[in-house]
Nucleic acid binder design. Structure first.
Lengths: 259, 259
DNA sequence: ATGGAAGCGTGACCGCCATCACCGCGATTG
DNA sequence: CAATCGCGGTGATGGCGGTCACGCTTCCAT
């Protein structure tokens, strides 16, 4: 284990809208370089012409962030983009009374802060590290200049944004169009297991989120999530061992999902 | 009044997911040109270098659409982008059981179908004309080629997408973080009146949506919207004369909005 | 060891609002 | 003109789920 720089975690239940500059992780910008970054060939900047790749490497600075660190805060003026090399980051927004909505969990290879940076507006979400993370940072102004100099990258950025939009709409559909919380939870679990499908009836996934966080993802309350998990277990739809979730009856969950 | 081409309206309550090609408005592509398009200087393509502007004019084709026409349908393979010159278009998504969620109402100057076109994926929303509309259409392939040839436009497209994303997040916040429908309705009305603020206490707006459509925008039911309007009237917060809405007590609505 | 915090499990309550059902009104259409 | 349809208004009902309250584990940190 590395001896991480000790970082003050985000205040629990606190309201962080309006861009509290004290929370900005300036002090963390460079702790340790991630030279062995495994996602050098991320979706956004792979196969660039040499000149562009050269310029890009000049303006990116690698950093590492411990669990609990915040990359940026909702409402804060966009400082730049973060390209995730490893780890996972929670992207959320919260209301004045402390309620939180988790929009999505970003994983390695994704680019964070892109919409706010290209539009030169405040970040619309808060990014909090939930697993030790390494990321490449590109400051706002340098990034825009880079895009202006290398027009051919603009299309890729647009495509990335289009996909982000796509998933946002999917999230909206799930929250806005379902009749019950059970439906949303079933959809969440199936989304989670998509891809991990091992072919036979059972699907195994590791569930790294707390009930509270799941509630915030589907727009519900912690207690209801707990109760629904119990209900699903009783119906033999799934099984939980520690942090491992086993979906035993995928079809059953799907039928719940379709009201 | 022009004698519009008669168009079969979208079937009420019907399920249109998966891209029913029968509904695609192919037959409407060119009805009448909008040479006097007042929004030639739209946000996305204004002040282009002459060569780009020239190329752009070669690949755009103006069309007119009557009320009820659909520009594109959710799930349909992206055919291209539509630049709205005049009129208003309802952007919605709907679930398998007929429930509909209106994501936003697009107005003149906006570009529709951009995310799906740049990512070469299906449209994520359905676009239905609610006011006679003139739009410039650019086919998918031509648009992508144009972006490749003229890299400097890519950044603008990215910015446009960033803003679209921004408003999608705002919509999600409203739907996912509020406690009551009253809260959402108050927010909707205040958003509507933003900008139309005449300085003194009262704000006047024309409300062109039915209660049903408002319900679909805030994720609620028609009856509750009706009841809430009644409640707001009784509390002297607003007043409705025909299709004109007068907000009499903006502060009151704001206090409802904040729970 | 031991206090405390974080996370899960449950019971009781009750208010919001979706849903169904029906009615009246105005506009459109044959 | 009658018939139809879209839209708004209203009552009754019932269940979902948010909220409060409390107890129980597990896991650190002192």
């Amino acid at each position: 284990m590395l001896s991480w720089f000790r970082f003050v975690p985000r205040k629990e239940g606190g309201i962080l809208r309006g861009g509290d500059p004290m929370r900005a992780p300036y002090g963390l910008e460079i702790i340790e370089s991630c030279l062995s970054c495994p996602h050098r060939e991320d979706r956004l900047f792979c196969n660039l012409p040499p000149s562009a790749a050269q310029r890009l490497s000049e303006i990116t600075s690698p950093s590492s962030y411990p669990k609990g660190a915040t990359l940026f805060v909702e409402g804060q003026i966009a400082r730049g983009v973060f390209i995730l090399c490893s780890g996972r980051v929670k992207l959320s927004t919260s209301s004045a009374d402390g309620k939180t909505l988790i929009v999505r969990i970003a994983e390695a290879g994704e680019v964070l802060g892109l919409p706010a940076t290209v539009t030169e507006k405040p970040y619309e979400l808060t990014a909090e590290v939930i697993e030790p993370t390494q990321a490449n940072f590109i400051p706002h102004q340098e990034f825009l200049n880079f895009l202006r100099e290398h027009g051919e990258v603009g299309l890729r950025v647009a495509q990335q944004l289009g996909e982000t939009y796509h998933s946002a709409i999917a999230e909206m559909r799930s929250i806005g169009l379902s009749h019950s919380v059970g439906e949303k939870l079933a959809r969440f679990l199936l989304d989670l297991s998509a891809g991990h499908d091992s072919g036979n009836g059972e699907v195994k996934v590791t569930l790294t989120l707390t009930h509270e966080e799941i509630a915030q993802m589907i727009g519900s309350s912690r207690e209801t999530v707990t109760r629904l998990f119990g209900e699903f277990k009783k119906k033999q739809l799934l099984q939980v061992k520690g942090s491992t979730l086993i979906i035993m009856n995928k079809a059953g969950l799907e039928s719940i999902m379709h009201s």
